[in-house]
Amino acid sequence: MRRNILVTAALVPALLWTVPASAEPLIYGLQVEQAERRFDDGSDLYAWDFDALVGTDELKVVWRSEAEYLTEGKQFETLENQLRLQKPISTFFDAVVGVRLDTPRGEDRAYGVVGVKGLAPQWFEIDADLYVGETSFVRIEAEYEGLITNRIILTPSVELDTPLGDDAELGVGAFAPKLELGARLSYDLLDRAVSPYIGVHYERRFGETADLARAEGEARDNLFFVVGTKMLF
């Protein structure tokens, strides 16, 4: 809760100009999709993916953070932080604009973000973003919550991150994407606030991006067993 409050406190000033003079309460919350350990013989990592948001029906400010932290070497393989403004454009979709700052080991990068986020027919949650930077990327994510029971939920997910240019420093080749597939089986332990899960996470690089990874001594693909928890506050 404390973290939640801090996040809110940090974001509220940015938002004040958008709050209409209405008694509708401010919407705020922390949605942690992933907070997990990924097990892979000796080179485990921790990963998180969360949105902290504050705003109104009309406009939300979202701090989105995604990271992968290597237990071996104690460094961030990826560390992305985005500040995104989210505004409804249709019944089920929001438009997104924002900035993204990557500060992992190695190269730091900054991007501008435009995208859409929403709920597609048949309950697929969609994020589609264009990141414009030194090298630009298109990233599309889809997720589905499959209810086995009302508390046991299987969440398959797919993410495709496609570079639009060559970038040796980032180790990516133009139009050679990285694919992530996941399947996480969670149990709603405390309302929907804490939902621990187990699952699998699979990553695969294609084309030039895969070749560059191999040249670095990394595998083209990885399969992880994951243990973690979803959270919603």
């Binding site: 309460p25 499959g146 209810l147 009302n150 919603l232």
Partner: peptide
Amino acid sequence: GERIMRNLKLMPDYYNRQQRTFL
């Protein structure tokens, strides 16, 4: 009530535990 309103805004089916399942 305040928390309920916020939860509904974050996730409209937050309190719906009668959703149709795979079973």
